[in-house]
Design a protein around this nucleic acid. Structure first.
Lengths: 344, 344
DNA sequence: TGTTAGCACTCAATAAGTTCGAGTGCTAAC
DNA sequence: GTTAGCACTCGAACTTATTGAGTGCTAACA
């Protein structure tokens, strides 16, 4: 049996309807709501074929049909009409970001909440990440009598900071001089390399041995266990609005997945080559998400780093709408992070 | 009618049982499980009295009794035996924090997840906050040809940073010189005062007018809209394990409250005078939380700032256990933030 | 040969009725 | 003051109907 034009049209109608209503759709609904010029009986025959082809599932014999993962796949790959989101939604995205936002974490938190508000699904935003960052400046800033803040600026624009202990009191000018020396020695190197270079410096600069040793300890620790990135999540409660999650146990396992950020990040992150990915149901590879879909898009910073934004929703999500929102948001973030005045 | 010793004992048994099981408790249960040396009929008479006194509610005539908010209040105020948490739990708290944790945000995130894991309720941790911070050091660090990172160290140890634009290229030494000048001028002043002082400086230091103007802009913005603090939340999904939240709509409204961090922070924060607070049901003042209780404790840093840790659970929560966990965790955090090597 | 009206059949969901049992209040006896 | 006993209540759980949306199949039609 072959797929033909008419079958496609009917399948599309079924998917559209199911996305809208969430209840299995019957032959009569299709023949009435979508004027096909065909009777329900004919639709039934075609539906039966579509089921045999694997595009439709039937929860039980006297219910309507439900699109299968295969159907959604076909839908996003070829059937879907490019969704236009309403202008005022778009506007709100722009307005949301027009105010100056400073810290990168604030930006992605904000992005997640905007996306979840617009889509009514759950949004996840991963911070930009990229190639091994190279040190640009190392600066020690006096904090108290016996502590200094160490600020490491990398070409990725990411600043890692922490205080280190000073054995003796060191005045501001000396700290600056040491900073310059360290910066000169480490500029352009990666963290790994820096950990190789520092010991030599410690040998040369005996008078500030302990300070350097502490600094070395700090860098080394950072190298081994880089701070795990901040994952922004928005709209987890949205999922409970869908009948798919009226089962409390299901909801609980979903929420608990949302709480383990590390795992969530690795799920969303994916390969990262593609501008957009759509993973449907089992394609997610996550047991807890067999009836979820994940749509992701990427954004980039001027340093060539890439971040990911993702939406998690029921398999019957409004793919076209979600894709277009992610598209807009991706550009928005790229602009923000490429603009002259981005922060961090 | 008066409250007497025996009534108290019965009430305590009822509360204990209800906290344990979550189902209305009947007279027979009490007379059997808690050997009072009284028959169920006698217990029934006493229960009837306790209901009249407002300590018990009856969901319907043929169900057992349920403790009222008033009963819980009495319970935490006088009946409760100080809970001893098992040693291995305690140990795990200590072990959890034995590894070096760096950023303050990581610490409170971690604390929230530990508390929620131990209590099986939802945990919220607010970062330390305190009196108006005073500027200690201002330092400009070169980031790129046309941008500098501004690091403001305050006595609260909080570092606010952001990049500002440089009109012309400024070398590292000049930036340092300017930083020193600014630091000298602003040290010991609050952000407000700094915004008053800077304009004068701009007049004096004409050659770096634009840089200073940008810096002023940054400080001014921060003064008007301080970065809202990071609120750590853990174990929201725990709540769904309790029959109290088997109603999806209830769960949704609870979760959605957990997502509005600002509101949540203000709920948890409270007055902040007391070391411990227990708010039961309606006492929370939050409509969505009529059948929740909130227990909070405080911790402090060596700068005299105070932070809050809170647990949100069903009214029938294990108050004594929660209080003792919060007690341990409060001390743990206080130690961590008062120790010599705390970060940020 | 494709389309469609018609009809028997299926089966989840809803409603309506039953039974069961945990729990109560009251009374009378101890 | 305590308790055994008993009638009573009422939600929960179980058991049937009843309904209706939906299907598959067949036979007639264009």
């Amino acid at each position: 049996m072959e797929m033909d034009e008419r079958k496609l049209k009917i399948l599309q109608a079924i998917i559209d309807d199911y996305i809208l209503t969430g209840v299995p759709v019957g032959s009569r609904t299709i023949s009435r709501k979508y004027d096909m010029g065909l009777s329900s009986a004919t639709i039934r025959n075609e539906m039966s074929d579509l089921e045999e082809l694997g595009y439709l599932d039937q929860p039980h014999v006297s219910a309507g049909r439900v699109p299968s993962a295969k159907a959604y796949r076909l839908y996003v790959d070829s059937l879907m009409k490019a969704g236009r989101i309403r202008d005022d939604s778009l506007e709100s995205v722009e307005r949301h970001f027009s105010g100056r936002v400073h810290q990168m974490e604030d930006v992605i938190d904000h992005a997640a909440s905007v996306i979840s508000a617009l889509t009514k699904y759950t949004a996840v935003v991963l911070p930009p990440k990229g190639k091994m960052p190279r040190i640009q400046t190392v600066q020690l800033v006096p904090v108290s009598r016996d502590a200094a803040l160490v600020v490491v600026v990398t070409d990725a624009g990411i600043v890692r900071d922490s205080t280190i202990h000073l054995s003796a009191e060191v005045d501001s000018d000396t700290l600056y001089a040491i900073s310059r020396a360290i910066t000169d020695a480490l500029r352009g190197h990666t963290l790994e390399e820096a950990c190789g270079i520092l010991p030599e410096m410690i040998d040369r600069m005996r008078e500030n041995e302990e300070l350097l040793r502490n600094l070395y300890g700090f860098l080394n620790e950072r190298r081994e266990s880089p701070r795990r990135p901040h994952v922004a999540i928005g709209g987890t409660s949205n999922m409970l609005s869908y009948p798919e999650y009226s089962d409390v146990e299901k909801a609980r396992s979903f929420l608990s997945l949302m709480e383990t950020r590390d795992r969530l990040a690795s799920i969303i992150d994916g390969n990262g080559e593609m501008a957009f990915t759509v993973r449907i149901g089992p394609e997610t590879g996550v047991p807890e998400m067999v009836d979820c879909s994940i749509v992701t898009a990427t954004y980039s910073t001027r340093n060539g780093q890439q971040g990911t934004i993702g939406v998690i929703g029921p398999t019957r999500m409004q793919y076209s709408r979600v894709l277009s929102i992610l598209n807009v948001m991706g550009h928005q973030l790229t602009d923000l992070f490429s603009g002259g005045d981005e922060k961090q």
